[in-house]
């Protein structure tokens, strides 16, 4: 049973592309056949984040317009044999593709792959409508900021209106020390407002910036906390039950000792 998942957020810059890259790579690492689709036509990024930029020959628009076969446009990632990327066109805009064409494309990819992950552009216009057209499931990414949560709320409403019910939530870039000081929305606050199931929480991690610039998703890095969070999310997507990551890394020495002996907390 293959699944088409769209990663969306409404607001830009909350980490849709990073999330797509990490989830896709994570799924490929555990042996699933994965296709990543960049639906952000005109502002493509996923290829850069994946480090596959200079291998693009054909793109998504070429496929839907019939200039090439789908196999020709799919870029195989040499590091992860199960992973393919269908890049977006850079010289066109969102109107180059229609929702019907996207649906057809997703159905074609579905036959080939276990998971098709679509990176949705920011906004609620044509690009969003295209990206969600062929999806069975949606993942909403947000950061613990009022503006991002507001946009996520709007997006969830639009997803429900498009029959994509029960989207899952990824809360990205949370900083536990700020939450503790009361300067950042806590996980509970966000879940309370959005009232959808939480798929995972990803901490704000410098490694993400480094790995994004290098073109190697953080999920591969065993020492990265954010990478661990993404590995857990991947497990949850495949149906495993994994407890939420303990993000309290700033515990003092005494707190760790106490935890060791099972007191305190």
């Amino acid at each position: 049973m293959s699944e088409v998942i769209v990663v969306t957020s409404g607001k830009g810059g909350v980490g849709k592309t990073t999330t797509t890259a990490n989830i896709g790579t994570g799924l490929a690492l555990i042996g699933k056949k994965v296709a990543l689709v960049d639906a952000d036509i005109g502002l493509r990024n996923l290829d850069v984040v994946m480090g596959l930029e200079n291998r693009i020959v054909y793109d998504l628009v070429d496929v839907v317009e019939g200039h090439c076969r789908i196999k020709q446009a799919l870029i195989k990632d040499k590091r992860y044999p199960n992973l393919c990327l269908l890049p977006a066109a850079q010289t066109r805009d969102k109107n180059a593709v229609s929702p019907e064409q996207m649906q057809k494309l997703c159905d074609q990819l579905r036959e080939e792959f276990d998971y098709v992950i679509i990176d949705c552009p920011a906004g609620i216009e044509q690009g969003f409508k295209n990206a969600i057209a062929g999806a069975d499931k949606a993942i909403v990414v947000t950061t613990p900021e009022v503006s991002a949560v507001r946009d996520a709320d709007r997006i969830i409403g639009l997803l429900e209106a498009s029959e994509l019910r029960n989207p899952n939530l990824i809360l990205n870039r949370i900083r536990m020390n700020m939450v503790k000081r009361g300067d950042m929305m806590a996980m509970e606050d966000v879940v309370d407002i959005l009232a959808i199931d939480l798929l995972g929480v990803v901490p704000d991690d410098e490694n993400i910036v480094i790995s994004t610039n290098k073109g190697e998703p953080a999920v591969v890095d065993a020492s990265s906390l954010a990478g661990q969070a993404f590995r857990n999310i991947v497990d949850r997507i495949t149906g495993k039950e994994v407890p939420l990551l303990n993000l309290d890394t700033n515990d003092g020495f005494m707190a760790k000792i106490k935890k060791l002996f099972g007191i305190g907390n």
Binding site: R150, D151, D153, R154, I156, G157, L158, E160, A195
Partner: peptide, 10 residues
């Protein structure tokens, strides 16, 4: 009666 969350924009 309406059951469900009324979200931003709805």
């Amino acid at each position: 009666y309406y059951k469900g969350t009324i979200r931003s924009g709805q």
